[in-house]
Structure formats: C-alpha cells, structure tokens
C-alpha cells in the first residue's frame, strides 16, 4: 500500500453487484465469489461509476426496475459508466432496461443507452420462455473463451431486446423467433440469460468478463 491511507471500501470494492431492490442478488454474488473474487452488493452511485467491474442483475418488470434505478439515483451513474466504456455486465432485466423503450406493461421508457426496442415474445408459445436454450455465437470475442458455440444457458423471460444496430448482437437464441440473447459493445456485455444459473459455462462467462475487465484497467 506504500503507506497510503485510503478509505477501507475503496480497497475492497473491485466487483460491484448493483442492488436496486430487485430481489435475488445472492446468486450473482455467489457466482462471483466462487470464481475467487470478493463481490460487493451496493446501491451507491459512486461504486457504480468507479468500481473496476460492475454487474447489474435484475428480474421483474421494466417499469419497477426503472422506478428503482431512479429511486436509488443510479440512472446517471449507469449511463455515465457505459458511455465511458467501463466494464459493465447486464443480466436479463439488466439488459432490457439499457434499450430505448419496452412494450411491457403498456409501454415503458428505459435508459436509452442502446437504441432499440424491448418486445413481447410472439403468441402461441408458453411464456415465460423458461429453461435451458442454445446461444449461437455471432462474434469472435474473448467473452466466449472456453465456451463452445451453441452452449445451453438458462433463460426466464417474456420479453426480448431488438437493438437497432445488429452489429451489437453477440449471441442469438431461438424460441418461436430468433432473438438477441446477448449483446456486446466495447466493455459492455449484456445477456438475456442468467450466467449465474447456467452451470460451469455461466461461471466461465463471468470469469472471462472479470479477467478481461481487470486486465484492461
């Protein structure tokens, strides 16, 4: 430490898991801990801006998520972090709210960080789309290191993202339609599936992300 005195939490927070009142964060934190890191669950905007790695989980409705992000004053921090291309991993609703607008609940304005719409899965299928489904890799990217093309990941959702810029689509999955199940833009990675519920390949994806994020620091 070279004799420098820093506030304790500045030394500890390397991996921030954003807590905005969205239920079960334990699985994400457990997954990160299993990889040998020390995750910190936080709703502090400064942590969200400054931690070397940020993971934003999320389940539930888009409108509730937006409400909670505003309530915890995290909207600016999340937007700023992604605009500055700092490592950010969004999961499920943590992917959807990055888009412009969601059809959910009669329509909901989202963060508009990734231009695009969040649409309801087509009728005639059981919803939620719940279970393990294949992710077809659309790009060569270190996030897929050690993860075979077509690996099954665990999904549970009723809406999907349709980004305007198709070049951002890193993974596709079929459920009635072919939809964007994973998106990559610089140091932003966001998945519709839940890596923390997707066994060893899910853990591997978090590990790839964290290694690359800490390496880029």
């Amino acid at each position: 430490m070279g004799g420098r005195v820093l506030p304790a939490h500045r030394l500890i927070i390397m991996i921030a898991v954003i807590d905005y009142g969205a239920g079960n964060l334990r699985s994400v934190a457990n997954a990160v801990a299993r990889l040998g890191y020390e995750p910190v669950v936080t709703s502090n905007a400064r942590d969200v801006r400054e931690a070397p790695v940020v993971i934003m989980p999320g389940v539930g409705a888009a409108a509730d998520t937006m409400f909670n992000l505003r309530k915890h004053r995290l909207v600016t921090a999340v937007r700023q972090r992604i605009v500055e291309n700092k490592p950010f991993f969004g999961v499920c609703m943590g992917l959807q709210v990055l888009c412009s607008r969601s059809e959910e609940g009669g329509g909901c304005e989202c963060l508009s960080i990734i231009p695009g719409q969040v649409r309801k899965l087509p009728p005639g299928l059981k919803v939620p789309h719940m279970g393990w489904n294949q992710v077809r890799q659309k790009v060569n990217h270190p996030i897929f290191n050690g993860i075979p093309d077509g690996t099954n990941f665990y999904f549970v959702h009723s809406y999907y993202v349709a980004p305007d810029d198709k070049n951002l689509v890193a993974g596709e999955t079929e459920y009635g339609i072919t939809f964007c199940s994973m998106l990559v833009q610089g140091n932003l990675v966001a998945t519709q599936f839940h890596p923390e519920k997707s066994g060893e390949f899910g853990l591997k994806m978090y590990d790839n992300f964290i290694k690359s994020a800490l390496g880029n620091k």
Binding site: R26, S27, N30, A31, R34, K197, S198, G199
Partner: peptide, 11 residues
C-alpha cells in the same frame, strides 16, 4: 437454501 445456493449455479 443458503448453503445450497453457495454451491450450485442452477435454478
């Protein structure tokens, strides 16, 4: 449940 969720990464 807490102990299980520390060990397994599945639903």
């Amino acid at each position: 449940v807490e102990r299980i969720s520390n060990e397994v990464f599945m639903p």
